[in-house]
Design a protein around this nucleic acid. Sequence first.
RNA 1: GCGGGCGUAGCUCAAUGGUAGAGUAUCAGCCUUCCAAGCUGAAUGUUGUGGGUUCGAGUCCCAUCGCCCGCUCCA
Length: 551
Amino acid sequence: MPGDVAFMEKLVALCKRRGFIFPSSEIYGGINGFWDYGPLGVELKRNIKNAWWQDMVVNPPNGPDGNEIQMVGLDCSIIMNPKVWVASGHATGFSDPMVDCKACKARFRADQFRVVALTADAFSDTAAGSQTFVFSGYGARDEVLEANRKKVEKIAKAQGGDNVLEIRTFLDVRPSARAFVPCPECEQRGHLTDPRSFNLMFKTFVGAMEDASAEAWLRPETAQGIFANYKNVLDTSRVKIPFGIAQIGKAFRNEINPRNYTFRSREFEQMEIEYFCRDEDSMKWYEFWRTTRYQWYVGLGLKSEKLRLRDQTKEELAHYSRACADIEYLFPFSDEHQELEGCAHRGCFDLTQHMQHSGADLNYFEEELWAKFLAERKARGEPELTKDQKSEIAGKPPYRYLPTVIEPSAGADRATLAFLCEAYTEDQKPDAKGAMQTRVYMRFHPRLAPIKAAFLPLVNKDGMPELAEKLYRDAKKHFNAFYDDSGAIGRRYYRQDEAGTPYCVTIDGDTIGATNAQHPGTVTIRDRDTLEQVRVNHTRVIDWLREKIGV
RNA sequence: GCGGGCGUAGCUCAAUGGUAGAGUAUCAGCCUUCCAAGCUGAAUGUUGUGGGUUCGAGUCCCAUCGCCCGCUCCA
């Protein structure tokens, strides 16, 4: 859908011009689906990732019971044992065979492409038998039958029975018979391609020999590294359920068609939490993370109605998933909301899969609960359990079990793009000559702003540059600051507006104690959004800024 | 992958098939006491890339790459 193309073009131009985002390998003509962050962009994205780490790992909010949340970090390798992706389902689920119709240009997933024939021979026999393909359809088996009900009834009547039709997917059609299958869209025969595999995983080779035994994959998500290390974390960090493991890292997907600026990139960065809890508490934790994560975006400035929290419908849920909420943003390139983050209730699907495929015991044992159970028995004077009885009881819930997982999985690049879109603001104001000018400014939350403050001598004389530079160097000990002494003051303010710098500190005659100074020793601090200025003594300006910025 | 559009200086755009230019931004200097276009000077291009037609191609033709829009796809 079109969205606001003009807005998007202006934002993309600003990002390029000011050094937020560049196309990857641009001097070689670029490469579709890959992007680089420039000097301002890297600060913005790092601030977003740091805010996430600070707010989710270092100092997360209290949980629903009011207790401190246990959260530890992790940084896993991008390439893992290929068996990981078999266990997770990505090896099969990520690879879809597609069929194209060369006549009408339609494309179909071969496993959703239903071919209906009069006889089973059509699928397995010679070309002659294939003449009995009567029609085809796209979607679930029942949908296809429903959509073609009249045809089905007519055939049933002619054949004198009910279950006369053979329905299989295109994958079951013999290569020699494919030419006789009609296209679900245009119904023409003989224009369908062979099923071609669209594998969304990036393949690589471990070691210098590129043979099949060396095949490996770049991870399509960071989550599996967490599951694979779940036991290690449990054994080394003294965490107890409920607890979370968090990770920020790159992931790779061979998107069929990267589009919409950095939104659908082939290399991207995720910020993921796997939160492990008891199954009976899981919906409570799901609700907690769902709102906590939504509020996190709001608190950092994504507060317009463009941000929304949407619960997935039953039909959208993966088969193992009990609930999932998407945090979505209405980007200017689309008139539909797009996903920034998914908060999924994954049950114990992932740990079950990895336990089965790896053979490792990933069960959690409730030591405290077990000790309590034994103590209570003793207190009641009940006879001591035998070794066999103990292992029987201790081996099952509630003492030994696979925890349930809540997964808030956020896209760092998508969040960065959303914050960029939300920040972009234009307004009209008169310039020094009274002509109306468009002012463009990036309204970043101070925590996210690439540059927190700029230090500007009003004129380059009388010691103003020297004092401005001293303040600038003091400020840099605490936060990212900028010094600029070139050009008219208005022009310098404007440059900082485009970079999204929340505060500009100007050193003027009053600061250096000029004879007619009304407020000796003070600088002016200009607010990016309101354009209002306050005077603060130059000895207090760093503290003033630190308090405002929160560093 | 298909269809349509676009590629000239960092950016915005000029240039009948005949010497590639302007504005802006950048840099150096001057001038400047608060909201981008004050003065002087400097630097800036294999016209996306590769072929072809032509005495001569930014311009015409072909191919290719990239971007934008639509379709398709999106575990």
